[in-house]
Simulated assay, not measured.
Amino acid sequence: MKDKDIFILEDNCESMGAEYKGKQAGTFGVMGTFSTFFSHHMATMEGGFVTTDDEELYHILLAVRAHGWTRDLPKENKVSNKSNDWFEESFRFVLPGYNVRPVEMSGAIGVEQLKKLPNFLQQRRKNAKLFVELFKNHKDFIIQRDIDNSSWFGFSLIIKPKSNLKRKDVINILQENNIDCRPIVTGNFTKNEVMRYFDYKIHKDLKNADYLHNNGFFVGNSQICLKKQLCIVQNLLCN
């Protein structure tokens, strides 16, 4: 970040294909993460990928994704002094690592899905246009505001402060009609017990995140036309 000693790591798993001021989301920081889980913009069933234009981070990622070994690193790299001895380098570990390498089948599916991604995004935006038309003046809900060119992972709704609705009742209505929904990206993440394992600070209170945590939810989008489904959701939530 300009003039500040801050490095941005973008969690872009739910914004593949989104743009802000002509630049792709996931490319603003030193690294960006993308998910290809089956409910996301494109799918390899499980998995995802990381983008970076920093060569050192790229080499670190190559090692970390495969147990922390040097086997996949080029001879000239920024992680280790790799020797010419292939036998020694085949099981030489230089970083703590994981086993998160994609399998060939996932890669093959991903290559074909990537070709379809522009059309997937186009349909998601068409669905979103209808969603906005249906809910923009709803008396009980605040909806997602597109500040540039969202790729619309889902359709977020937040119950307005003056509404008499209770989220639990709304979710029950959706579930009774076989309409799935989720919290909006966990809501206020700092409420999760896992936070006790991290060294972190919170600047002031998180009142907006808390409100979203307690009153928000989203229903899914897709790369197929959802006109019928969105009209059903509107009918349920307007009655």
Rank of each mutant, 00 (worst) to 15 (best):
T190I: 11
E89I: 00
I232V: 11
E89N: 09
V132F: 01
E112I: 02
L61F: 02
H138Y: 03
G48Q: 05
F153I: 02
F217G: 09
Y211E: 08
G26F: 04
S80F: 15
R196P: 10
E55A: 11
E46A: 14
L134G: 10
S15M: 10
E10I: 00
E76P: 04
G68R: 02
F120T: 05
W69A: 12
N127Q: 00
E56V: 14
K23R: 13
N235D: 15
Y200G: 13
F34N: 03
R92A: 04
C13L: 08
F198W: 04
H40A: 07
E10W: 01
F93L: 08
D5T: 06
N127F: 03
H59W: 02
F131T: 01
C225Q: 10
N137Y: 07
S80K: 01
D54L: 12
T27C: 14
I109R: 05
C231F: 06
N208I: 10
T36Q: 06
V170G: 00
D148T: 03
I179K: 00
L61D: 05
S151I: 01
N214G: 10
S83C: 11
P183N: 10
F155M: 02
Q123L: 00
N81F: 13
G110S: 10
S222H: 06
N84S: 14
I224H: 09
D3N: 13
I202S: 04
N178L: 08
F198C: 11
K168I: 13
H203R: 09
A108L: 14
D210W: 04
Q123G: 01
M16R: 05
F135D: 02
D210M: 11
M16G: 07
K2H: 12
M195R: 06
V111W: 05
L95S: 10
F28Y: 12
N208M: 12
D5K: 04
H40I: 03
Y98L: 04
D210G: 11
T44E: 09
W152Y: 01
K191V: 07
K201Y: 09
N127C: 08
V100S: 13
M42S: 07
G68W: 05
N77T: 10
M105P: 04
F131M: 04
T33F: 15
K4S: 13
K23A: 12
N188F: 02
K227F: 07
I109T: 08
C238Y: 14
Y20W: 02
M105G: 08
N178Q: 12
L212R: 05
D210C: 11
S156P: 13
R71Y: 13
E88H: 02
S151R: 01
K228M: 13
E88A: 03
D146V: 07
L9W: 11
F87T: 04
F120Y: 10
Y58S: 14
F218Y: 08
K75F: 12
T186V: 15
G48P: 15
